[in-house]
Amino acid sequence: MDSLAASSSSAASSSSSPPPPPFTDPPNYAFPHHRLRRTLRNPDKQPIVLVACGSFSPVTFLHLRMFEMAVDYVRQNTDFEIVGGYLSPVSDQYKKPGLLSAHHRVNMCTLAAEQTSTWLMVDPWEAFQSYQRTAVVLDHFDHEINTCLGGVATADGVRKPVRPMLLAGSDLIATMGEPGVWSEPDLEHILGRYGVLTVERAGADMDQAIDSLARWRHNIHLIHQLIQNDVSSTKVRLFLRRGLSVRYLLPAPVVDYIEENGLYKDDGPTTSASSGAVTAEREKAAEREKGKVAP
């Protein structure tokens, strides 16, 4: 049993109250688990949850489609069993053009998950606090599901720890393969401890990226798009600024929400996450905290 399974199994089997979480939670936070499947269908499978971290500004059909592609891949190519899927919108303190406040982004993700899916959930833990590194976000899911909830059970009652796995586009993996962008400890934590399911995207050089991440190749699962979809939040925002329709690029409830709230008419400072803006010095510190090693 690897270190993740060993530590999670020990926590899951403990009958005493879980220790205080080593994390800071946003005010009034409760971990969403209403769609988390608590019983394995196949006791021989390793239970996993898919965690997609990103801006989701706005969430698109491709973001949601990635989860369905992952389901097909896992069923056909692995010994995993998916027991849940989460969108984890990034904090306001990660400023970039087009990043609306976490309030709007979480609302849009929730509409998309609750009204178009039967198994996806939105975890606002990352969104409503200071910037959290991806490695820490995955630790948070590990803690909530395995320590607090006790993992999942087989049909005969045997408890098993759940492994969080990052779900991402191949452009993210490409950045992981670039020297000096991600810290080595974070790469070891994300790719070595948890693993990633990555969906190919046009323009990302996956061969070169995976070659540079060869030591974790066993934990990097590349999912090919059988039907190419290059819809992106950036393109959607451009359409909206030009007054063009984005229906059938986004879930209908998300389109309605954007129109009702007059969002994305301008990607300037007023629509970036100004309410959570940080100074240049603090932003650089947040970037370094995320795992980038350049000062």
Rank of each mutant, 00 (worst) to 15 (best):
P22I: 10
W216E: 03
V59I: 15
D44N: 13
P47S: 03
A153K: 13
L62H: 13
S272N: 12
L197W: 12
N229W: 07
L187Y: 06
S14V: 05
S10F: 13
P26H: 05
G151E: 02
E114V: 09
V255T: 10
A174K: 13
R159I: 01
D186S: 09
F56Y: 14
Q93I: 07
F239R: 14
A273L: 07
Y73H: 15
F128Q: 07
F67A: 08
D267H: 04
L111K: 14
F56N: 08
A209P: 04
P58F: 12
V246Q: 07
R217T: 06
A280N: 11
K45Y: 01
E283N: 11
S117V: 01
L87H: 14
E259L: 14
P124Y: 08
P161G: 03
S183E: 00
M176E: 04
V122E: 10
W125I: 00
H221C: 03
A70F: 15
A5G: 07
S7K: 15
T39E: 01
D211Y: 06
R282N: 09
F141R: 01
R41Q: 01
G169C: 05
E81P: 06
E178M: 14
A252S: 06
T175Q: 13
P251L: 00
P179E: 08
P164Q: 03
K290W: 10
G243W: 04
A214K: 11
K290H: 07
T271Q: 15
V106K: 14
A273C: 14
H33T: 01
F61I: 00
S55W: 07
T154L: 02
V90H: 04
D79P: 04
S14Y: 10
F31Q: 03
R288L: 04
L172T: 04
H224G: 05
D205K: 09
L4G: 03
R38S: 02
T234F: 04
K284C: 08
S101D: 14
T24L: 10
R41N: 02
V278I: 11
P251G: 00
G169Q: 08
T271H: 14
A285M: 12
A5H: 11
T134N: 01
L4R: 06
P27N: 03
M108K: 07
A155S: 00
L213V: 03
G243F: 04
A294S: 10
Y264L: 05
L187N: 08
A155H: 02
Y264M: 03
Q129T: 05
L191P: 12
V278Y: 09
A286G: 10
D123L: 03
R215N: 04
T60E: 10
L250C: 03
V137Y: 00
D142A: 01
N261K: 14
P124C: 08
S3E: 15
K292Y: 01
E126Q: 01
G268Q: 11
T271L: 04
P22W: 13
M66F: 15
Q115F: 02
H189G: 01
L222G: 02
L167G: 05
K265A: 08
P21Q: 06
N42Q: 03
A127F: 13
V74G: 05
S232A: 04
L240F: 04
V231A: 07
R159W: 01
A135E: 08
R159K: 15
V246H: 09
H218D: 10
F80R: 09
E259N: 15
P164D: 02
M121V: 09
F23I: 03
